[in-house]
């Protein structure tokens, strides 16, 4: 922003200086943005004595990871999170596809009102309704089950909305051609609409997985045993100050919990960013 305001007599030169300053600022901000993560990596891979001391010659160790792994049932937490995330995503894909198809291509009485009622969930997310949803779950006997954590998220207004948009861009001629060949309406959905909406499915899938991998409040409310707790809840209990675990070990546990998603992100950075972009444009 500074480039054009200084030294109009030598615009070339000033422009170059401005660009250097701006590049420096962009890099500085980027450094600040990864600093917390770098710090966690530093603390996790060095002995606790070096947790707050930046010494480049400090010995490296995996001890903290071993301690964290042995002090809490992280393997179980990983399994729980994996089951949770996959069951939510699976159900979302099926439910949202069907509902989006109905909204995009079927004319039925009350469709617009129904769609408006679906969109209500964009404002009133399940997080806000923890009190009543907890009551419902206890009536259904689903407290402290992985299904109980996932159920409120399975019909996703966001997913229905995104897929409806994608389905609407499919030319009706394609559908008619498939019809002529004798496809039923469900076959049309599976053979025409779903394949054409693949980028939207990828985008929605990535957003859903990272949302539910990271979700905390509702899982905290509805779980109370090691057998159901996802990673985030396990990590919160593990890292609570009362538990007296030291920083290096907490850093190691934190890195363990974020590792799968973080590594996937680092490997498929472009797809992640593009997916979030796609999901954001409405």
């Amino acid at each position: 922003m500074t480039a054009t305001t200084i030294a109009p007599a030598a615009p070339e030169h000033a422009g170059r200086i401005g660009r250097v300053v701006e590049t420096g600022a962009a890099w500085l901000l980027a450094f600040l943005w990864v600093l917390p993560l770098l710090y966690a990596v530093w603390a996790a891979f060095h002995p606790p004595a070096y947790a707050t001391r930046l010494d480049l010659l400090a010995p490296l160790t995996l001890e903290n990871f071993a301690t964290a792994w042995s002090q809490a049932p992280f393997a179980r937490y990983f399994l729980n999170t994996f089951l949770l995330v996959t069951s939510i995503l699976g159900a979302q894909l099926v439910l949202c596809t069907l509902a989006a198809y109905a909204f995009a291509r079927f004319r039925f009485v009350g469709r617009d009102i129904a769609f408006a009622l679906v969109l209500v969930q964009l404002m009133i997310m399940p997080e806000v309704l923890i009190v009543e949803n907890y009551r419902t779950m206890s009536q259904l006997g689903l407290v402290d089950t992985i299904l109980g954590i996932g159920l409120p998220y399975m019909a996703s207004a966001f997913g229905i909305f995104l897929l409806r948009q994608a389905f609407k861009t499919v030319p009706t001629e394609l559908e008619e051609a498939a019809r002529v060949e004798g496809c039923s309406f469900l076959q049309v959905l599976l053979k025409v609409y779903v394949p054409l909406a693949k980028p939207t499915y990828l985008a929605y899938g990535l957003v859903s997985v990272s949302t539910h991998w990271n979700n905390f409040l509702w899982p905290l409310v509805v779980t109370n045993s090691v057998e159901t707790r996802p990673l985030t809840v396990g990590l919160a209990i593990f890292g609570a100050p009362e538990s007296g675990v030291n920083w290096s070990v907490i850093s190691a546990a934190t890195l363990l919990a974020v590792a799968p998603l973080l590594i996937a992100f680092l490997l498929f950075q472009r797809q992640f960013v593009q997916s979030f972009m796609r999901a954001g444009i409405k």
């Binding site: 943005w33 993560l37 603390a43 905390f216 920083w247 934190t254 973080l262 992640f272």
Partner: peptide, 26 residues
């Protein structure tokens, strides 16, 4: 540019719980 963009975006995919653990040290 790719690295910078990645740096900016990284906090988004970390769970708030993990992030809070790290910031507690700060």
């Amino acid at each position: 540019r790719g690295l910078v963009r990645m740096a900016y975006f990284t906090p988004t995919i970390l769970p708030m719980i993990a992030v809070a653990n790290i910031w507690l040290f700060f």
